[in-house]
Design a protein around this nucleic acid. Sequence first.
DNA 1: CGACGGGACGC
DNA 2: CGACGGGACGC
Length: 404
Amino acid sequence: MEEYPAKQAPENLDDPPNSRLFVVTSRAVTEDALRDGFSVFGEVQGVWVVKDKQTKESKGICYVKFAKSSQACLAMEEMHGKVLSEGTKPVKVFIAQSRSSTRHRDVEDEELTRIFVMIPKTFSEEDLKDTFKEYGDIEYCVIIKNKFTGESKGLGYVRYYKPSQAAIAIENCDKTYRAILAEPRTKATAPEDYSGGASRGDYAGGNDAMNQYAAPMADQGNYQAMDYRSGDFTRCLMMSTRAALTQEQIFALFDLIPGMEYCELQRDAYGMSKGHALIRYSNLGSAVYAKEKLNGFEFPPGNRLVVNFVDDGEDRSSPVGRMAMQFVATQMMSSVWNGGPSTSQVMKPPVSAGNQCLIYKRVSDPELFPPPHCSTRLTLKKTPLKAFFSPIKENTYSCFSNIY
DNA sequence: CGACGGGACGC
DNA sequence: CGACGGGACGC
């Protein structure tokens, strides 16, 4: 096992912040395999495999220290879910808690993707986005304003889709912006319940050769910005992930909720995944349900998906239309939280193996997977869920997961 | 589930 | 004189 050099003593483990990874591996994975796997993402300053004091055997966890937070974040995003040595389980990768922290809670992407900046008071949210989009794909920008006069307070938030993008912005943007990671908005209360999400800009890049599942009539692009706090619900969702998911996997997952009519993995100019996908349902209820069930869902093992509403361009300007949508959505939420009208009739899994069952790829039959307002519902357990995906045969994927 | 070492600078 | 340094979201 390699030691940290003397200059890499414990007091430097958190410098710069969020530059150290917490890696959950198999006990069999060696330090060399770890170093080889992670060093391609940046300057690895130390690898430390945690071992049992007595037996000296690996406990299956280790720490990897990078020189920069952006390197650590990139490695996390790319390595999470990967198999390091053949025959071992996929690794889970998180930003390590700071050494002084006693909490052992996972650091969530939520805490790593939003930055807090100081900007000229003349900046509009468009200006803010134009300034920071060079560091990564932006989910939304918000400027703090006087709620009465509407004038800017010269402070803003920028939410990226990936931790590495936020880290790169902090490292590389003009120092006058004083960019830092934003503290989570609601620390004490349920942090998962974000609603909405703004996006606009280049979601158009759909080359149909790669989008075999896209609905032919699907309207692309021009998704207007929307206040992420407004609580609006739409039929469109944006899913972001650290894992390298395929179009097929994302399609299969979101297709579990009936009513999906469009699903597209966003790609860059080179056809590489940008780590997020746009999904649209035929109705509000399905979208609300999909967001509720899949936001925070681990897919593949350990990788928490982030799912938010995005503006679908429908007219929500009128108070009547807005209230109607909120009403429907509230009904759906209530149904979700309370387990629906008849939770007792949980569907019988098609294939059962103890606590696990098989979910087949294309399941749109309302008899098997009815919409959330019906009496039986698919229920995906959110937290300690272990999903394992593997290609069974061409174009077919299965999901082993805990269902209850 | 899966959270924190071994070893000794240089006055 | 004249502008540094500061910093938080309607639950």
